[in-house]
Simulated scan of single mutants.
Amino acid sequence: MAVDVEAPGLTPVHRELSRAYVEWLTPQDRQPFRPHVTLMNKATVEEAKAALAELGAGWSAFDSHSPALLLWRYLGGPWESVRRFPFTGRAG
């Protein structure tokens, strides 16, 4: 279960990174960009329905911002934090 994220400024960042690292992208990485926050992963249908019922009643959109882009490496199960890239506000 996921929540869509409206972040127009994120699309150009994603496009630039995709172009720079095209030779290393997996088929999953090459899918259309749909920013989202994953609330549940690998849940059963019953678990997802129960969570949606619980969250749905009180869920509302909210504004937020991100101070940086985080790079993670997938290790076949766990993830490893690799680097933090702060947003400086300067065009690169």
Rank of each mutant, 00 (worst) to 15 (best):
E47W: 05
L39W: 05
M1A: 07
W24R: 11
V5R: 02
L69P: 10
A91N: 15
L17R: 00
V5K: 04
G76W: 03
R34T: 06
D63N: 14
A57S: 14
W24E: 15
S18L: 02
L52Y: 10
S81L: 12
T88N: 00
S66K: 01
P8S: 03
A91V: 12
R90N: 11
W79M: 03
T88V: 03
A57Q: 14
W59N: 04
A2E: 09
L75E: 14
D29H: 14
P78K: 01
F87H: 08
G56W: 05
L17E: 03
A50W: 01
A53S: 11
F87P: 12
T38H: 09
A68W: 02
R19N: 07
G76S: 09
P67V: 00
Y21W: 13
A53M: 06
A2R: 13
T26Q: 10
G56L: 06
R34W: 10
T38E: 06
L10I: 01
R15H: 09
P32T: 00
E46C: 08
T38P: 12
A50F: 02
D29F: 02
E54S: 09
G9M: 07
F85K: 06
A51T: 09
K49G: 08
G92C: 10
R30A: 03
Q28L: 12
A61M: 05
W79H: 08
A50L: 08
R19A: 10
R83A: 14
A53W: 09
V45D: 15
L39E: 06
A61V: 01
N41C: 05
K49P: 07
A7E: 07
V3A: 10
L55K: 04
G56H: 08
H14M: 15
D4H: 07
L70T: 11
A51E: 11
A48L: 11
F87D: 03
E54F: 10
G76K: 04
R30L: 10
L69Q: 02
V13A: 04
G92M: 13
F33L: 00
A50I: 01
V3T: 10
L69C: 08
P78I: 00
E16K: 14
N41I: 02
S81A: 15
T11R: 06
M1Q: 02
F87E: 07
V13H: 06
F87T: 01
E80T: 06
L55V: 02
D63F: 06
T26H: 03
S60A: 15
G76V: 03
V3L: 14
T44C: 09
L17V: 01
A61G: 12
Q28Y: 15
